[in-house]
């Protein structure tokens, strides 16, 4: 433990970004602490300053805007599960947030912002957020910018939480006619998934299916199968849907991970399974009226 570690709790967003800028390296942003505290307890991190952002009102609240539902980065998982606006506009997100591991205690305290910034391969909700085409708002010394979440995911060493702040997540409301599902293969009720998949399916006016499909816990980053799958569906309209999903998983998941939940080959196989289950469940939920 670094005994000289200091603490700051800014009250305004511009104070926070200026402070991060002035501190240079060594500062670390903390909100719910669910990601950082275990590392702190075991001496794995020793920032010179902990910046506690839990007092920033700009990072709170859930609002409907022209761009979609704007969710403050400090919103806890439990709030995402029960908030009526999210329940009706983004039911997939509410459902995925309920699957987060660690139990109610973590749901009460863990924030959506922290979950995204941690970018842990096994974490829930990232596949759902990608399938929902979420955008994130980032505040830095240059002001505020909005970027697609997927852009963040390609930068392996992003500076969120050290130089910049994730302030809000903006997600377009789901089409009420779409069907959706989140499937998670897990060992116990509160554990991480060995594979998970988020699917949103919409029947287009011509009767064809539009499938948004993202799998997680199988590679370092969630894998978006949407593009490759829609190409296949277009080129082979008469092949069985499950076979197409299998083929796309095989082709696109090139670098599966191995950990205590299973080795790479198994993980890839299970990703195929949950992907097919998620799409089948989503199709069942399409409103036919």
């Amino acid at each position: 433990m670094n005994l000289r570690m200091q603490y700051a709790r800014p009250r305004k967003l511009d104070q926070a970004t200026e402070l991060l800028d002035a501190l240079g390296t060594g500062a670390m942003v903390i909100a719910g602490g669910q990601e950082l505290m275990p590392y702190l307890n075991y001496g794995r991190i020793s920032p010179s300053i902990f910046m506690d952002i839990s007092g920033l009102a700009e990072l709170e609240g859930i609002e409907e805007t022209a761009q979609g539902i704007s969710i403050g980065a400090l919103t806890v998982h439990r709030q995402i599960q029960i908030n009526p606006v999210i329940n009706s506009a983004l039911p997939l997100l509410s459902f995925a947030a309920a699957q987060i591991g660690g139990g109610r205690q973590v749901h009460n305290r863990g924030t959506i912002g922290g979950n995204i910034v941690a970018m842990h391969a096994l974490y829930d909700i990232a596949p759902a957020l990608i399938a929902l085409r979420a955008q994130i708002e980032v505040a830095g010394n240059q002001g505020l910018r909005t970027v697609p979440l997927t852009e963040l995911l390609v930068e392996t060493d992003h500076d969120l939480g050290t130089k910049t702040l994730l302030t809000r997540i903006v997600i377009p409301a789901m089409d009420p006619a779409s069907g959706w599902a989140y499937e998670k293969l897990k060992i116990t009720e509160g554990s991480y998934g060995s594979a998970n998949a988020a699917a949103i399916v919409l029947r287009k006016p011509d009767g064809d299916l539009q499938v948004d499909l993202v799998v997680g816990a199988v590679a370092e980053q969630p894998v978006d199968l949407t593009g490759p799958l829609s190409e296949r569906l277009r080129d082979n309209p008469d092949t069985d849907l499950d076979e197409q999903i299998d083929a796309v998983c095989q082709a696109v998941i090139t670098d599966p991970i191995s950990d205590q939940r299973g080795h790479a080959e198994y993980r890839k196989a299970m990703a195929c399974v949950v992907a097919k289950r998620a799409v089948a469940a989503a199709i069942k939920k399409i409103k036919t009226s």
Partner: peptide
């Protein structure tokens, strides 16, 4: 944050106190 033996309530909601910063 795994075992839950340290669970307490903060404003009526349960949290794991080992992964809650006291300052917060």
């Amino acid at each position: 944050g795994h075992c839950g033996a340290c669970t307490v309530m903060v404003d009526g909601s349960i949290v794991k106190s080992c992964i809650t910063l006291a300052a917060s």
